[in-house]
Amino acid sequence: MTQEASENKGTIRVVQLYPRDMNIYGDWGNALVLKRRIAWHGYTPELLEYNVGDDFPEDVDVIVGGGGQDSGQLVIQADLLSRGSTLQELAEDGTPMLLICGMYQLFGRFFKTRTGSVIPGIGVLDVETHGTDERLIGNVKVESEEFGEILGYENHSGQTTLGPGIRALGTTAKGTGNNSSDGQEGARYKNIVASYLHGSLLPKNPAIADFLISTAVERKYGSFTAGAPDDRFAVLAREHAGRRPR
């Protein structure tokens, strides 16, 4: 079941954004999947954390960020804004990133709460989010041309709409996604995948994990040669999860 790297094809540095304050709903699962799959593909993973007040790591190959309680978002907000230009540069430069839920919202232009106060985002993604009274909760199935069927679970009350400069990750076949009106879920921009889906997202959607890894490797080493991860459980978990009710 475990494929250790037989030869060292190179090191890939994965940075988790704010794991101390933004780590709800199995966000660790996404980091763990990157760590294991990088090794299964024959490369050496290096997992780094960036928390409030830390020095920002050098030579970042992949970035993952997750959701959080409202309280967690308040804690990181100022620090994130101070890192806005660094993250913007990395994004424009093509660094692969996975942004889930709260971090998806904060990478957008702003989050307007129900009471009307506006929390500025870092504007890497041309999206805006509005807080609502309605909580969107349940299993989700998304159709994506790029990644095929994407399976996950959503739990959010912020509703996000995409600006003209950005496309959706896919169309929802079950569940709500970005908002309760346009049937779209997540966002794709440069090498960023942003989504409301937990589950965790990457374990049951290895195509997205491998997109992030292969992009990171190609950017760093010129070309990517895949290993052979054993995805039999992933295939069966997808089959069974896809049949579960909303």
């Binding site: 709903y25 199995g26 699962g29 739990n155 589950g199 374990p203 999860a241 579960r244």
Partner: peptide, 9 residues
């Protein structure tokens, strides 16, 4: 609970 995310924590 329908959300399986917790298994990853």
């Amino acid at each position: 609970g329908r959300d399986m995310s917790w298994l990853w924590d």
